[in-house]
Write a protein that binds this DNA or RNA. Structure first.
Lengths: 197, 197, 197, 197
DNA sequence: GATGAATGAGTCTTCATTCAT
DNA sequence: TATGAATGAAGACTCATTCAT
């Protein structure tokens, strides 16, 4: 397997991805130079371009990974055998916890999407839409079943909730008074309360 | 007073600010070159550096203007002679309408703040904190008066609402099905419903 | 006029063009770095990009200048009030002398044209075609008048002659036994002899 | 003998040479990457460096092959038992046909020679000189015998003709009105007519 | 014979800012 | 007030070549 690992034994592509994620979150995509990434990962520029076609590909990889993980988790919660309000609450809380656990990814997500080329942007948007639609379907299910208010269009409710999720990277601090789970419970609670008929 | 205006009669500094705002929102701060700004404003580089010390100053000006406007409006609504739930609803809805009316500023705000130097960043954060505190005070007033639930800390509620406001620039489209006022009413409604005791 | 000149008083754009021409001819377009050009011209990279949009623009400028000069000279000879065989001989000899006087340009011309972008390439080809057609018209005039043989299509005769002109940069050495004018007379002579009826 | 061939059964070195020839002609030596060559040949980089010491060696091989072929053909025509004007005409026409049949090689030849290292360049030049001298000897033989004019030095006549041969790759198109043999006849004819006493 | 991961020097280009006029 | 030529540092990316396997 040649020299795919080095030092700590982590494969080079993953070392690069980790370094890029941290740096993109820290100083933004445009302010992070390829040079800084490879230095942080302990490899050379050539190695980076051996695995990734461009700096943008690195960003795109971060997105794909996050979206894949979140989608899988959402699907699991949404498919559970429970009343809809419990499933929605669980999903709403889980995305908060997962987001806090990967605050770097979240920060990148909502600040750097416009740095992707139109083509890649389109693909990411499509994946994200799929995610939103799954979430919206849960709300609509509850509305049809009469357990959620129909006062607000489900679409808007989804954006309302995800606005607060995206916003987490702006204000949440690990050393703050609330644990991730507490924050998640509160935010899920606010969502469910707003949906009471 | 020489030629402080030109063409349409708008003073040069304001033309620069308008051009910068549009471009920063369109392609991001780092992707906008000083050359593009001056071309869009119809002036030369020398002129820009005559009025603004740096590109960053331009960004900071955009922030200051938005914050000043929002603060003034919030103060007006908060000071009104009305029951607290009406004042909160009005303020919550107003910030949505104002944000939609200035989506460019909003987009810049939540994507480019980390481009400010630490010093300027600190100042902007301070102004924003003042704004948040005023909003939080309204919620706490309602909680103390028993008209709002105390289930969730006021702090978190504020972030919950402003998360959705920031998020507007991501999803709101002027040609969508809802008018700014309708969106505002819905979002304010969700907030108030979530706060029902 | 700011600092458009420096050292020897030659304007910066012309100094850059001269340096580029020499270097492109010496080591080829791709083997000449922008860094080398600006060093040879005694300016900085920024200055180059202030005047020329790209390295390719520099190459295109070399082409345009050569073509313009050659076309003007050809037109002058072709329009003269002389018998056609004298006009053709004069034009055929002149292009040889001019080419030898600017061997660098010639070397670039026939080695680097494929380095131009398709769009620029098309423009250069069009200009060159115009030049060829003027030359061909002279030959056809003589053929119609019976002073030149019609054994060979005029098109081919033109390419035959210009082949030898282009080839000059491959073999002609200023310190060789023949002066430019002597070479020119010989080559024109060969052309005219080949065209004898 | 392991896998020296693959797919179509052509040995790897020849597949590489063929791919390199096409690509060098198409986009120039410097613009062709080793990666592109091995991809076009359907092998890996390791394989290329197993058979060729460097990218330059590949170029040198193209040269050597062309020169060897042309020299052999010229020798055959020059040694024939025919009057000198017939031998010259045959040789002059043959080099045109052979060049057209291998336009790629010709294009490379007259555009990429300066990409060879001084040492290799010297060797190629020497071989080419030998070729030229053989051709020149034919002309001088005719001049001494009184069948060719002595108005122009034989040297110059050789360059005159080869100029037009080199030029072929610039203008000749397979789908044009003339067949390779027709072009060859015309160009040989022009040469012989120019040499009429 | 053949692989392909890794190197590291080198490429063109961009850009905020300065300053003589 | 305003110009625009010039700077110089930094940016992303390419590529021939090597070498452990």
């Amino acid at each position: 397997m040649a020299r795919t690992t080095d030092g700590d034994g982590t494969p080079v592509p993953q070392r690069l991805l980790a370094a890029a994620t941290r740096l993109f979150a820290e100083r933004g995509y445009d302010r992070t130079s390829v040079q800084e990434i490879v230095e942080a990962a302990g490899v050379t520029k050539g190695a980076l371009y051996h695995y990734f076609g461009s700096k943008e590909d690195l960003l795109q990889e971060v997105y794909s990974r996050v979206l894949r993980i979140q989608q899988e988790r959402l699907d699991a919660y949404a498919d559970a055998d429970e009343p809809v309000e419990r499933r929605l609450r669980a999903a709403a809380a889980d995305v908060v916890v997962t987001t806090i656990d990967n605050l770097d990814d979240a920060a990148i997500f909502f600040r750097s999407m416009h740095h992707l080329s139109p083509e890649k942007n389109k693909r990411v948007r499509a994946e994200r839409r799929r995610y939103h639609e799954r979430f919206r379907a849960l709300i609509e299910e509850g509305q049809r079943g009469g357990v959620f208010s129909t006062a607000t269009p489900a679409d808007l409710v989804v954006d309302y909730h995800f606005g607060s999720v995206h916003h987490l990277s702006t204000w949440y601090r690990p050393d703050g008074p609330l644990t991730p789970q507490q924050v998640a419970d509160h935010l899920a609670d606010l969502l469910l309360r707003a949906l009471r008929p």
